[in-house]
């Protein structure tokens, strides 16, 4: 509860900070939604020409794209520093968070809000509404699926970026992994054979951010929900453990800096 109050205070401060430049805020939100619309049109062209990919059609793409975009947006909005945690470690900027009596990881990742995330988050709901699979109970499952997919994505970002404690500069590798996660998450899961699926549930858990949440939204199933919950819990536990273990190796940059 104490952490939740702390998080709410950080998010409020972040929101006030980004809202200071309202035109920029609105431009980024609307721009990102438009960006997603245009990108998704490519899939509409594809499915108009080829109809389906092993039983996976345009309607399924709407739902998968929707849940993935909203989860991505949610992490961008509330845990924006998770994308650049490796740079923070490398530049010695963890000093600031270590010197305060708050959970270091939570404080660090929640301290930045990426404005365009609001566009992604909103677009996801529009995509689900347009899927032709919209139902009111489906909407509740959509919201739950977004939350769990966001936990998966945030945990994945923390895990990948925590390699910076051991490997130093990891920005190229992080970008590669983020791109792989998002790309594999959007593509129809029916494309992949069993070996590829194993990778998509473990090394690059894109299935837990796209296909599995989408499956749960389409049809309520305790088994799918269980898979999602278990996947999210394992990944989050692993991410926190790896970060804490890496933190023991952290060396201060001894740089005097102010976080704004």
């Amino acid at each position: 509860m104490r952490h939740l109050k702390f998080l709410l205070a950080i998010w409020q401060a972040n929101l006030q900070s980004v809202m200071e430049y309202r035109v920029s805020f609105l431009t980024q939100v609307v721009g990102m939604m438009l960006n997603n619309f245009i990108y998704f049109a490519i899939w509409l062209i594809f499915f108009d020409r080829f109809k389906d990919v092993r039983g996976w059609g345009a309607s399924d793409m709407y739902v998968t794209f929707g849940v993935l975009a909203s989860a991505f947006g949610l992490v961008s909005l509330f845990f924006g520093n998770a994308f650049v945690l490796g740079d923070i470690v490398n530049n010695g900027r963890l000093d600031y968070y270590l010197s305060l009596p708050r959970p270091v990881l939570l404080h660090a990742v929640a301290s930045r809000m990426i404005t365009s995330g609001m566009g992604d988050f909103t677009y996801g709901f529009i995509s689900y509404a347009l899927s032709g699979q919209f139902t009111w109970d489906g909407l509740l499952r959509f919201i739950l699926a977004i939350l769990l997919a966001a936990v998966v994505f945030a945990a994945f970002l923390i895990l990948v970026n925590s390699l910076a404690f051991w490997a130093g500069v990891v920005s190229s590798f992080t970008n590669l992994m983020i791109n792989a996660m998002v790309t594999f998450g959007i593509y129809p899961i029916t494309l992949f054979d069993n070996y590829a699926k194993l990778i998509l549930f473990t090394v690059i858990p894109a299935a837990l951010m796209g296909a599995v949440p989408a499956e749960y939204i389409r049809a309520a199933s305790w088994q799918t929900l269980g898979e999602l919950l278990l996947g999210a819990a394992i990944l989050l536990g692993l991410a926190v453990t790896v970060f804490r273990s890496g933190l023991k190796r952290y060396e201060s940059g001894s740089a005097i800096q102010i976080e704004v």
């Binding site: 035109v23 990102m32 438009l34 245009i38």
Partner: peptide
């Protein structure tokens, strides 16, 4: 304009 990122994305 203040922010050019949306033009880049589009």
């Amino acid at each position: 304009v203040e922010e050019v990122s949306p033009f880049m994305w589009i």
